[in-house]
């Protein structure tokens, strides 16, 4: 706005700065912890700014030497990538058709509410049945098993988000394609899905993050390197008799990198998905 008083402007910028500080402070502190030496971290009073730079922990965690802590950590990162990727892929495959169906057929919208209702249950209430189910199918401590559990969380969430996206795509466009002779699959492939691309990308990103950050089920259903995810691996770092806070912080930084990279790659699609729903006139 052109015409704004100095006071109003400084208020707006002040609010923006305060908000960024609140959001960024923990991240900055996490990063500083990861590069501070152990003495700096345990000093009284605390050294907010490290006196000596210590990058050794990155070396410890990013290492391919067999049986090292680094190999275990990288293995858990890989597990997280597979589990989250698989669960997200599955969720999108399930959610796109069901979200479209619910959006275009208001008569079956109750089914979506039913699914969302189960989503409201606290995870702990489902832990035992899920554990027994996974055990029955021999899927405990497997990537596929954990991905399946995550699918039950991601699918309703993705369906809900995609439905609101499909709602913004005018039905007349699909009617026009129908009259033009397009089969349902052609209508979806050539008309609806290209229009829904931004919202699908947004949904996929959020679903991936949801799976990436999940801790409770991962802790319960994985036991060792075959399926342990990065959230559990970081908890393991804290579980020893002596906790190296710097090491935990380094794990946190490394665990944050993949989603951040994916977010950067998908930035444009996500932003247009968040702002407009992707459809204009």
């Amino acid at each position: 706005m052109e015409r704004r008083s100095l006071a109003a402007s400084s208020l707006v910028y002040g609010a923006a700065i305060v908000m960024s500080a609140v959001i960024l402070a923990p991240l900055v502190w996490l990063f500083l912890m990861s590069i501070s030496s152990a003495t700096d971290l345990s000093a009284q009073p605390l050294h907010w700014w490290p006196e000596t730079l210590d990058l050794s922990r990155y070396g410890t965690l990013v290492s391919l030497v067999s049986n090292s802590a680094g190999e275990a950590f990288l293995g858990s990162l890989r597990n997280s990538l597979f589990v989250s990727g698989l669960a997200t892929l599955g969720a999108i495959l399930v959610a796109v058709p069901s979200a479209w169906a619910v959006s275009r057929t208001p008569q079956v919208q109750w089914s979506l509410f039913a699914v969302i209702a189960t989503y409201m249950l606290p995870p702990v209430s489902l832990a035992v049945p899920l554990y027994m189910g996974l055990a029955h199918f021999g899927l405990l401590n497997t990537i596929v098993g954990l991905a399946l559990v995550y699918l039950t969380i991601l699918a309703p969430f993705a369906t809900w988000l995609l439905k609101t996206g499909f709602d913004t795509i005018p039905q007349e466009i699909e009617s026009a394609a129908m009259i033009d002779g397009a089969r349902l699959d052609q209508t979806m492939r050539l008309v609806t899905l290209p229009l829904a691309k931004p919202i699908v990308a947004t949904t996929a990103l959020f679903a991936f993050l949801l799976a990436w950050d999940e801790f409770f089920y991962a802790l319960l259903f994985t036991a060792d390197q075959r399926a342990k995810t990065v959230t559990v691996a970081i908890a393991d770092l804290a579980g020893g008799r002596v906790s190296d806070y710097g090491l935990i912080a380094t794990g946190g930084i490394l665990a944050a990198l993949p989603p951040v990279l994916i977010g950067l790659v998908m930035q444009r699609a996500v932003i247009s998905g968040l702002t407009t729903g992707g459809v204009k006139g």
Partner: peptide, 17 residues
């Protein structure tokens, strides 16, 4: 609709963007 030998022009144009 596709087998009716009709064509329709919609109020919102309904073009494929």
């Amino acid at each position: 609709p596709k087998n009716r030998d009709i064509a329709m022009v919609f109020q919102s144009y309904a073009l494929y963007p």
